[in-house]
Simulated assay, not measured.
Amino acid sequence: MKKLILLLIMLISVSAFSQDEGRRMGNRANRSPEEMANFASDRMTKMLDLNETQQEQVKSFYLERAEEMQKMRKENSGNLSREDRRKIMQEAALAEDEEMQKILTEEQYQKWQKSREERRRNWQDGNRRRN
């Protein structure tokens, strides 16, 4: 009886974990460009204490970027090589960097760069653990 209960608990916990992971990934993939832009501008506002003008500029930049990426995904679904995707992402990162330099103050920009690098490192560490 104890073994059966233990087995049920293990199955339920594994099932719950896998469903939670699916929801997180699905939510990100199913977000509209407006939701993505709102999320990014809200996160940056909290992190960098943006004024209203900066908030609007950041939001419009991320909205435009999200719409472009969504369009690109639809047009090229699975047709791009790894190298092409890497090149596109590098170009997007450079454009983002240039735009943030225009919008943010020097202090905000430095803080944003540090945060961006930390997120990138965390993402890479997470990918290494999964592989």
Rank of each mutant, 00 (worst) to 15 (best):
K2P: 11
K3F: 06
L4R: 11
L4P: 13
L6G: 15
L8D: 00
L8R: 02
I9Q: 01
M10G: 04
L11Y: 00
I12G: 00
S13T: 15
V14Y: 03
V14W: 04
A16N: 03
A16K: 02
F17N: 07
Q19E: 05
D20Q: 13
D20C: 15
E21M: 15
G22Y: 10
R24L: 02
M25H: 14
M25L: 13
G26H: 04
R28L: 14
R28K: 14
N30Q: 13
N30H: 08
R31T: 03
S32A: 05
P33F: 06
E34G: 03
E35Q: 11
E35V: 01
A37D: 10
N38L: 14
A40I: 08
S41F: 07
S41K: 07
D42E: 14
M44V: 06
M44F: 06
L48F: 02
D49T: 09
D49I: 03
N51W: 04
T53E: 09
E56D: 14
E56L: 10
E56W: 08
K59M: 10
K59A: 07
F61I: 03
F61C: 02
Y62M: 06
R65M: 06
R65L: 13
A66V: 01
A66D: 10
E67N: 07
E68F: 08
K71P: 00
M72F: 15
R73N: 13
R73S: 11
E75F: 02
N76M: 12
S77N: 15
G78A: 11
G78S: 12
G78K: 07
N79Q: 15
L80Q: 10
S81T: 14
R82E: 07
R82G: 04
R82C: 03
E83N: 07
D84N: 08
Q90R: 06
E91P: 01
A93S: 09
A93M: 07
E96Q: 10
D97L: 05
E98D: 14
E98T: 05
E99C: 00
M100H: 03
K102N: 08
I103G: 00
T105K: 03
E106Y: 04
Q110S: 11
Q110H: 06
W112V: 05
K114A: 14
R119I: 04
R120S: 15
N122T: 07
W123I: 12
W123G: 11
D125E: 12
G126Q: 13
N127M: 09
R128A: 15
R128M: 11
R130W: 01
N131F: 10
N131H: 11
